[in-house]
Computed example of a mutant assay.
Amino acid sequence: MSNFETFHQQTQPLLLANVWDAESAKLAKLAGYQAIGTSSAAIASVLGYEDGEKMPFEELLFMVKRIVESCPLPLSVDIESGYSNDSKKIVRHIQQLAELGVVGVNIEDSKVEKTRRLADKCAFSEVLKEITDELKRRSTSVFINVRCDAFLLNLTNAREEAVERAKLYEKAGAGGLFFPCVTAKADIAELVKSTTLPINVMAMPDLPDTNSLSLLGVKRISMGNFAHILVNQQLESTLKEIREQGSCDSLFA
């Protein structure tokens, strides 16, 4: 079992710093994090793209390579829905990342076309099984964290849908399950109960604190692209102050 996989079995949840470039990764290491994960939305923003696989996979690879070479922490990469509908091509993408030293990936069960929509759960599960089976055949060890977007899309039956998908994805070979935007303790408890896989939640304004999440059985907490948004908001505020005050003092405050 890899160190990264072991991190998902700790008493306290693995707190994953979501990064977008080499510098943010190095800062996560300095702050004492055990592991890091990329934010696809943040990297896309840095490179001038909208989220939703608008960024070419080759450009994601470039950024991942720079992060891996700049920071020794275990890295999980957000590959959205795999940058393809073809399981063989998705496996090639994951293989390329693994060859760079990536230890995990997030793959999501929704896709952005005109709007973001959930994939058919049975069809997605079949593709997921093809991916995990082929990775095993190649002896490629990567932690597959499957993101279910039932809560992110605010479905009226989000809990029921997520529980059904959790069971299917576990059978298909997922290593962990990620439910962004779930915040209610009752929902989280039901998700934990529905699977033997480690459950990952995402930072939200009304998410319970880490100790509460630990008691509920959560094993991983991600930050999404919120750190990147915060940094950009602070930069925007500073740049406005400089222009409005006619002074660069704000840079040195």
Rank of each mutant, 00 (worst) to 15 (best):
I221G: 07
E161A: 12
V163G: 01
F226R: 14
D149G: 01
T210N: 06
S125F: 01
T132H: 00
L153A: 04
K219A: 13
G246R: 05
A227L: 15
E160S: 08
E126H: 01
R159C: 12
M223T: 11
S212P: 01
E170K: 13
P180F: 06
E241I: 14
I199C: 05
K240A: 13
R138S: 09
A166F: 05
L207I: 08
A150V: 05
F179H: 09
A162Y: 11
S194N: 07
L153R: 07
E134W: 00
K136E: 13
V231I: 11
A227N: 11
T195I: 02
G224V: 02
D133T: 06
L239K: 15
K193L: 07
G246A: 07
C181Y: 14
E190Y: 02
Q245C: 07
I229T: 14
L215A: 13
L168S: 05
N225A: 13
C181A: 15
S214F: 03
K193W: 02
K240C: 04
Q233R: 15
E134T: 12
S125T: 07
N225Q: 12
E126N: 04
L191I: 10
G176Q: 10
L235P: 01
V127P: 00
R159G: 02
T132D: 03
K185G: 02
L213E: 06
V142S: 00
E244I: 00
A227Q: 09
L216Q: 11
K240E: 12
N157M: 04
I188S: 05
F226C: 04
P205N: 09
C181E: 13
V218N: 09
V146Y: 01
T156V: 10
S247W: 08
E160Y: 03
G175P: 07
E241A: 14
F143W: 10
A172L: 07
L215D: 14
P198S: 08
G175N: 14
Q234N: 09
A174E: 08
E134Q: 12
E236D: 15
R137P: 00
L191M: 05
S139H: 10
T196S: 15
V142F: 01
L191H: 02
C248I: 10
K129A: 12
V218Q: 08
T140I: 15
E161H: 03
P180A: 03
S222N: 09
N157H: 14
I188Q: 04
G224L: 03
T210K: 12
T210Q: 14
T183D: 06
E160H: 06
E126I: 09
S125D: 02
D187E: 14
T196Q: 15
N225V: 02
T183G: 02
S194A: 15
L152H: 11
E160F: 00
I199S: 01
V127Q: 11
K167I: 10
K193I: 00
H228F: 15
V218L: 10
R220F: 08
M223Y: 12
Q233M: 10
M223E: 04
T140K: 00
A174P: 06
T210H: 03
V192D: 04
N232S: 12
L213T: 08
S214K: 15
S222C: 05
F179M: 08
S212E: 15
Q234C: 04
A184I: 06
L230I: 05
L216W: 02
S222I: 09
C148I: 13
L168H: 05
T196L: 13
R147D: 11
E164L: 06
E126D: 06
V182W: 06
T195R: 09
L207E: 06
A186F: 11
A184V: 08
L135S: 01
D133S: 06
K240I: 03
K136N: 12
